[in-house]
Nucleic acid binder design. Structure first.
Length: 900
RNA sequence: GGGCGCGUAGCUCAGUGGGAGAGCGCUCGCUUCACACGCGAGAGGUCGCAGGUUCGAAACCCGCCGCGCCCACCA
């Protein structure tokens, strides 16, 4: 035991011992019922860890350590999420490169000197294999830095079980699961409208969207009713949606072209005519924030019971500028009080457009390219008919090739010039959907993508969510809300490079057409495969891309499509069936609440589809770390606190104390003061241990003194509370209960027994020494999940082996040991001591100042209890005489000063 | 618009049917032999507002206000 115990250097000292001794090594020979397995979240390695990670990973670690002390063999791996877009973006910026799959592989490639330092420098195009190599290089160095931080923090991870989401095992598991889904018809590909990020040029999933407020403008635009539109036709044609689209529009196109010549002379005349007509003819005014999509308009919609538009419904109108004939239909989702009550359906402005387009069987008129610019469009050909092809062409030439924003600006000018814009655009703020990692709003474009069937499993997923034990329980509502709000199957393909490839090829027929509906799959033992370099069985490499040959699927899977399989990846699915059986389904998934709709949801889905059971029994949801102004810490806000210097300044135990004080699921403000409290607690534990262990109780001694027995009884209750809290995954409550009692113990119990403990007669001191050792043994173990370093240190002073493998204190054993102890003894004695201290403090006297006499008035029962410990009270208060008087009310009269 | 959570001392928060609490901060005092990274004492609150249930409400119920998050809408 050191002369002056210190916290300095404990992280390095015990970190090395734990590694050498394999303290946290998983023992796979243990039977399943003795195993506790944790589906650790793999942190994204692109970027750095921040205090939010320290926060939530500490929560998990306290659970892991508790379970280990309860005798469980804890399977606690660590993963790194290096797969996906964040890594690509980081590599692009770090090295100043971009991936171009058409560039051939260069085995001697060196990244550009200086990397992305010069922002004006054009990124260097590199081949896909070179790009992937750069991704791997950079993520490996990140992963080392992360591991160093976790070790300093004292996570009791088994560092021999790590994985990466781009690693071979992850790829194998991911591809194998995909092929299984494909074989069972649960994965399918479809050419369909898809959420699309125009900068990354990839499909994105519903779960990856977020709203951002953006200024926009509302434009009121006039469509021109077609000839013969009046109130008469409305009733008959309004009811049937489909009839109005296909052939109807086609026929009208020819008509319109002829009729046009007359009306198209001058915009002025047109406008005037429309105004004049308005009195007898219905108006076709719509409001839109996206006028650039007018060329993609396929219908106008009104609410079925909206009287204002009754005359128009069932007729056709012409789009402004382009003169495309579109039907006016009804749909129940149209809101009457929004805008004019008449809405334009485009292919596609938003997800509502997709719904309407699908439900009403409307045609597609796509104007938006995957690069976010307006496409060239063949006016006058089928699907692109106009009553004035020349005007349509002339107008559209002003837009083609422009970005969305440029096109919007220009078309507003055109509409204004033609008189088809009514009034001025009105500025509005509206929420726009963004890819959470993107910089421009997501668009919807039609493309071929892979999907996993999700909607049809909704009920089963809700049921699984109810089976799962949520900590805290109310978090389940977020899961159910999400599942109930799903509006499409899960799109898992991404047009990116650093990810798990789809393990399929497609035959190319003799005519050169790719047969996407006849995918060629590899055998399972060939996994993982990369179809962009590997060749399917029965083909030669030179047949790639040739008629009669094959083509590899160019896409990679979404990150979540792989990380939704983390339990199977760490559990050794497909390579280690024996391990899988021991750890899967897992006991615990710890994660933050913001990824319930992604990671949690997709993991439950995959486990449901592949195993028809839950992937884990419990999920523990942690909150976020907020900055002192209660804003979420995020890189973009620049309010992130990096953790390494915090650990160095305050110590790992102190940082863990702060983290473990944050209750499950609750967002917690970052607070250095709490770390200082943690450090105080750790120092206190050092010193209290030093005091308690200084004297050995005489052999064969027992807890004879009533105060000592009372202490042990009370300790047993605290152990029971801490244990219950941990069993309910409430580590914060366990810490709070333990800590509160510990400080009380130091301030009252230890002070009360000090005199007796110092008595030279071992028969007098034995009981106190034994109680001190017994209680410190419990405290050291109760605090071990929270303060692993200092607890290991103080444990090592007097015990063999690691405290982290010692058994968790047993409340029943302690209760038996203190049997007959009356808690009232502790309570009354402490009450009197407090009054004596108060008297000394009021008199500005030191605490060791002598007290001539103390007169205590109290009820008989309490006085009896006090008598049992009055020897300790006299010594602790330097009291020379104690008088007890039976009274209805507790009172203490203190007379300071020594006897004359 | 729907859902979830939160609102208690200056700050961070615990308390969930019967005394309004802890730590920090603040004030005063104490070199006390485990610890000055300490010890003792003190000041400080109409427990968001309003109603109800109850002998009794910070806690349970209803409504409202405020804050946060999630979802939907976003023409």
């Amino acid at each position: 035991m050191p002369e002056r115990p210190s916290l300095d250097g404990l992280e390095a000292k015990w970190g090395a011992v734990w590694e050498r001794e394999g303290t946290y090594r998983f023992d796979r020979s243990a039977p399943r019922e003795h195993i506790y397995s944790i589906d650790t979240p793999p942190p994204t390695v692109s970027g750095s860890l921040h205090v939010g990670h320290v926060f939530s990973y500490t929560h998990t670690d306290t659970i892991a350590r508790y379970q280990r002390m309860r005798g469980k063999h804890v399977f606690y791996p660590m993963g790194w999420d290096d797969n996906g877009l964040p890594t690509e973006r980081r590599v692009q910026n770090y090295y100043g490169v971009r991936c171009d799959p058409s560039v051939p592989y260069n085995p001697n490639f060196q990244p550009p000197v200086g990397g992305g330092a010069d922002a004006n420098q054009q990124p260097v195009a590199v081949s896909r294999p070179n790009f992937v190599e750069l991704c791997l290089t950079l993520t490996q160095s990140d992963e080392q830095a992360f591991e160093a931080l976790w070790r300093t923090l004292g996570l009791s991870v088994d560092w021999s079980t790590t994985y990466t989401t781009i690693g071979r095992q992850a790829q194998r598991v991911s591809q194998r699961s995909f092929l299984g889904l494909l074989a069972r018809g649960l994965a399918y590909q479809l050419e369909a409208p898809t959420l699309w990020d125009v900068d990354f040029q990839t499909a994105v999933a519903q779960a990856e969207l977020e709203d951002r407020e953006r200024p926009g403008a509302m434009h009121r635009v006039r469509f021109t009713p077609a000839d013969g539109a009046d109130g008469n036709g409305a009733g008959e044609r309004g009811a049937s949606g489909e009839g109005a689209s296909g052939e109807g529009a086609d026929g009208a196109g020819a008509d319109g072209a002829g009729a046009d010549g007359a009306g198209a002379d001058g915009a002025g005349a047109d406008g005037a005519g429309a105004d004049a007509d308005a009195r007898e003819r219905p108006q076709a005014l719509i409001e839109t924030t996206r006028p650039e999509l007018i060329a993609a308009c396929v219908a106008l919609l009104a609410h079925p019971e909206d009287e204002r538009h009754r005359a128009l419904v069932g007729t056709d109108v012409f789009t402004p500028l382009f003169g495309t004939r579109v039907p006016v239909l009804t749909h129940a989702h149209v809101e009457r009080d929004k805008g004019t009550g008449l809405v334009m359906v485009c292919t596609f402005g938003d997800l509502t457009d997709v719904t309407w387009w699908r439900e009403l069987g409307l045609p597609v008129r796509a104007v938006l390219g995957t690069d976010g610019r307006l496409l060239e469009v063949p006016w006058g050909t089928p699907g692109w008919e106009s009553r004035d092809v020349q005007r349509a062409r002339a107008s559209y030439d002003e837009l083609a090739g422009r970005t969305i924003n440029q096109a919007r600006k220009r078309i507003v000018e055109l509409l204004s010039d033609s008189g088809e814009l009514v009034g001025e655009p009105q500025p509005v703020n509206r929420a726009v959907k963004f890819f959470e990692k993107g910089d421009r709003p997501v668009e919807i474009v039609t493309s071929r993508q892979w999907f996993i069937r999700t909607l049809e499993h909704r009920d089963a997923l809700i049921a699984r969510g109810r089976e799962l034990r949520w900590h805290p329980p109310y978090m389940r509502a977020r899961f159910e809300d999400w599942v109930n709000g799903l509006n499409g199957d899960w799109c898992i393909s991404r047009q990116r490079f650093f990810g798990v490839p789809f393990p399929v090829w497609y035959p190319i027929d003799a005519g050169g057409a790719v047969l996407y509906d006849q995918p060629i799959t590899p055998t399972l033992d060939a996994l993982p495969v990369d179809p962009s370099t590997d060749v399917p069985d029965g083909y030669q490499p030179q047949q790639r891309g040739q008629p009669g040959g094959f083509l590899g699927d160019p896409d990679v899977m979404d990150t979540w499509a792989t990380s939704s399989l983390t339990p199977q990846i760490v559990g050794g699915a497909s390579t280690d069936a024996e391990l899988l059986k021991k750890v899967f389904p897992m006991d615990l998934r710890p994660q933050a609440h913001d990824i319930i709709r992604t990671w949690l949801f997709t993991t439950v889905l995959r486990s449901q589809l592949d195993h028809d059971e839950l992937p884990w029994a419990n999920v523990a949801i942690s909150g976020w770390v907020l900055d002192p102004d209660r804003k979420k810490m995020s890189k973009s806000k620049g309010n992130v606190v990096t953790p390494m210097h915090l650990l160095e300044e305050h110590g790992a135990d102190a940082a863990r104390y702060w983290a473990a004080s944050g209750r499950p699921g609750t967002d917690t403000a970052f607070d250095v003061k709490q770390m200082k409290d943690g450090r105080r607690l750790a120092v206190k534990l050092l010193n209290a241990s030093k005091f308690a262990l200084a004297e050995l109780p005489a052999p064969g001694s027992s807890l004879e003194h009533p105060l000592d027995r009372a202490l042990i009884v009370r300790l047993a209750e605290v152990v029971a509370q801490a244990t219950d809290s941990f069993e309910g995954y409430d580590y914060a409550r366990a810490l709070e209960r333990t800590e509160r009692f510990f400080w009380w113990y130091c301030d009252y119990y230890v002070e009360l027994v000090k005199g007796r403990r110092y008595d030279p007669d071992p028969r007098v001191s034995a009981s106190a020494s034994l109680a001190l050792r017994t209680s410190l043994s419990a405290f050291q173990r109760l605090f071990a999940p929270f303060l692993p370093f200092v607890c290991e240190e103080v444990w090592s002073w007097w015990q063999e082996g690691s405290v982290h493998r010692a058994p968790w204190p047993d409340a029943g054993e302690l209760a038996a040991l203190g049997r007959g102890g009356e808690e009232l003894v502790l309570e009354v004695t402490a009450d009197v001591l407090r009054e004596v201290r108060k008297a000394k403090s009021d008199a500005r006297q030191p605490m060791r100042a002598p007290v001539r006499s103390v007169l205590v008035g109290d009820g008989a029962e309490r006085l009896d209890a006090l008598r049992l410990a009055q020897d300790d009270l006299l010594l602790a208060g330097s009291i020379e005489r104690l008088e007890l008087r039976e009274d209805g009310e507790f009172s203490v009269h203190v007379e300071l000063g020594a006897l004359g």
